[in-house]
Amino acid sequence: MTDQTATTPEVTPAGLLDDWMPRRELAGISGVSADTLKRWETPRIGPPCIRIGRKVLYRRSAVRAWLLEQESRETSGRGMAGK
């Protein structure tokens, strides 16, 4: 018999979604409307998200990574604009 508690991390129900935020919260933080985030979901041009039933959640670390990616996209093309 093996001890599975050593290999499976314990997550309390209260802390299960600590790293996730609903669309409305991301909209408030980012200044982008919830409708815009919804439109970005299908073509996958916005931050990655998951669905739990009707609820859409964004992982905070994935949103940070997406923002950094957007920053590098914008700065990579700036040097060529004036040439």
Score class of each variant (00 low, 15 high):
Met1His: 04
Met1Leu: 10
Thr2Glu: 15
Asp3Ile: 08
Gln4Arg: 08
Gln4Asn: 11
Gln4Glu: 13
Thr5Pro: 00
Thr5Ser: 14
Thr5Tyr: 06
Thr5Asp: 12
Ala6His: 08
Thr7Cys: 13
Glu10Phe: 15
Glu10Cys: 12
Glu10His: 15
Glu10Val: 13
Thr12Ala: 15
Pro13Asp: 11
Ala14Val: 09
Ala14His: 10
Gly15Pro: 01
Gly15Asp: 12
Leu16Arg: 09
Leu16Asn: 02
Asp19Val: 09
Asp19Pro: 05
Met21Arg: 08
Pro22Arg: 07
Arg24Lys: 14
Arg24Ser: 13
Arg24Val: 08
Arg24Phe: 03
Glu25Gly: 03
Leu26Asn: 02
Leu26Cys: 04
Leu26Thr: 02
Ala27Phe: 02
Ala27Leu: 05
Ala27Ile: 03
Ala27Lys: 03
Gly28Gln: 09
Ile29Asp: 02
Ile29Tyr: 10
Ile29Ser: 04
Ser30Asn: 07
Val32Leu: 09
Ser33Met: 06
Ser33Pro: 05
Ser33Val: 06
Ala34Tyr: 01
Ala34Cys: 05
Asp35Thr: 15
Asp35Glu: 14
Asp35Ile: 05
Thr36Tyr: 08
Thr36His: 12
Thr36Ser: 15
Thr36Val: 12
Thr36Gly: 10
Leu37Met: 02
Leu37Thr: 01
Leu37Lys: 02
Leu37His: 02
Lys38Met: 11
Trp40Arg: 00
Glu41Lys: 02
Glu41Ile: 00
Thr42His: 10
Pro43His: 05
Pro43Ile: 07
Arg44Asp: 14
Arg44Thr: 09
Arg44Lys: 15
Ile45Ser: 05
Ile45Tyr: 08
Gly46His: 00
Gly46Thr: 01
Gly46Val: 01
Gly46Phe: 00
Pro47Val: 01
Pro47Arg: 00
Pro48Arg: 08
Cys49Tyr: 03
Cys49Arg: 06
Ile50Trp: 04
Ile50Tyr: 04
Ile50Lys: 14
Ile50Phe: 04
Ile50Ala: 15
Arg51Pro: 06
Arg51Met: 09
Ile52His: 11
Gly53Glu: 09
Gly53Lys: 09
Arg54Ile: 05
Lys55Pro: 00
Lys55Asn: 08
Lys55Arg: 13
Val56Gln: 05
Val56Asp: 03
Val56Tyr: 00
Leu57Tyr: 11
Leu57His: 07
Leu57Val: 06
Tyr58Cys: 03
Arg59Lys: 11
Arg59Asp: 11
Arg59Gly: 01
Arg59Pro: 00
Ser61Ala: 15
Ala62His: 12
Val63Gly: 06
Val63Cys: 07
Val63Ser: 04
Arg64Leu: 11
Ala65Trp: 05
Ala65Asp: 15
Trp66Ile: 01
Trp66Met: 05
Trp66Tyr: 12
Leu67Phe: 06
Leu67His: 13
Leu67Ser: 13
Leu68His: 04
Leu68Ala: 13
Glu69Met: 07
Gln70Tyr: 01
Glu71Thr: 09
Ser72Leu: 09
Arg73Cys: 01
Glu74Lys: 05
Thr75His: 09
Thr75Ile: 13
Ser76Cys: 05
Ser76Val: 09
Ser76His: 06
Ser76Arg: 14
Gly77Ser: 08
Arg78Leu: 01
Gly79Pro: 02
Gly79Glu: 07
Met80Ile: 04
Met80Tyr: 04
Ala81Pro: 00
Gly82Cys: 10
Gly82Ser: 13
Gly82Leu: 12
Gly82Tyr: 08
Lys83Cys: 05
Lys83Val: 10
